[in-house]
């Protein structure tokens, strides 16, 4: 009985998937042949054009074939405008991770400081409140102008957008460490550094990790837009390039790949969060 119940959700998922593919397939079916295809006209424009209009939007089978083609050779490199989708994703992931880790290196120590000191918190709060809502892409021209390198600018944009959730969550996590744990450390005459690493850090770790999880999600959202602007490499550039090629199948493939990688990044962070989470 329970095993049956366990299969219900996956079965429903499958049904939804098939339904969506079915609708998609139905909508992209070749239209019925035009009733009066003049034979001379057909001879002029070619048989294919005359005998029914193929939809401009690719059918599921087209996309499936494209995905299969990409999977067979994900890492090919035939010049700057023709690279495998795997290479493009690798470029994007590398940029995201670089910007993200740099942001963590800044946000976690600064968040610690803000969380530990109400004075620092009040002093820096106005800046955080003003800087936080700025769209990361708004920094792009400034980054391009000052850094003079499109790839570094993309990393900078990732850095700036991952910074705030990590900073705010770290500060909040550190500030809300239970007083009694700090009191235990005080009665044991534990020094400030040891308290920070042995008491505050593990106590705030779940909150910090939640911030990091939010950040990686935002960073992955932003990288696509950033790469569309800076160009050259990356999955965002790939999407834009295929738009210029009018290859909807490639765009759909890339969209699917972006979603899957985003999910994997989130899963990874969720795993890490579970590692540091403690039951109360």
């Amino acid at each position: 009985m329970t095993s049956l119940r366990n299969w219900r959700a996956p079965a429903l998922s499958m049904v939804v998937f098939l339904l969506m593919i079915g609708i998609w397939h139905a909508l992209t079916l070749p239209k019925a042949a035009p009733p009066a295809a003049d034979s001379e006209y057909a001879a002029l424009v070619g048989a294919a054009a005359a005998s029914g209009q193929k939809s401009a939007f690719p059918s599921p089978a087209d996309v499936g074939a494209k995905i299969w083609q990409h999977l067979q050779e994900p890492f090919y490199d035939r010049g700057p405008n023709d690279k495998g989708i795997g290479i493009q994703l690798a470029f994007s992931i590398a940029r995201v991770l670089t910007g993200y880790l740099l942001a963590a290196l800044v946000a976690i120590p600064v968040g610690f400081l803000i969380g530990m000191s109400p004075t620092v918190y009040r002093a820096l709060d106005p800046y955080i409140q003003v800087l936080k809502p700025i769209s990361p892409l708004a920094w792009m021209p400034l980054a391009l102008f000052t850094l003079k390198d499109s790839s570094i600018s993309a990393i900078f944009v990732i850095f700036i957008c991952s910074l705030w959730p990590m900073l705010i969550n770290t500060a909040f996590g550190v500030a809300s460490v239970r007083k009694e744990w700090l009191n235990v450390a005080r009665t044991l005459e534990v020094g400030p550094l040891r308290t920070a690493f042995r008491v505050i850090l593990p106590a705030a770790a779940p909150t910090i990790m939640t911030g990091m999880r939010i950040s990686i999600g935002i960073a992955w959202l932003v990288i696509v837009a950033a790469e569309m602007l800076v160009g050259g490499t990356g999955i965002g550039y790939f999407v834009w390039n295929e738009w210029n090629n009018l290859s909807i199948t490639n765009i759909l493939t890339a969209i699917l790949a972006i979603g899957l990688v985003g999910m994997l990044l989130d899963l990874l962070l969720a795993r890490l969060t579970r590692l540091v989470t403690f039951p109360e």
């Binding site: 239970r178 009191n183 235990v184 005080r186 009665t187 005459e189 008491v199 106590a203 540091v276 403690f278």
Partner: peptide, 20 residues
Amino acid sequence: SGPSLDRAVIFQSHALMPWL
């Protein structure tokens, strides 16, 4: 003048660190 290892405290809420 401050907390000391000479005086150990047993807290009402036990105050154990749940991650240890």
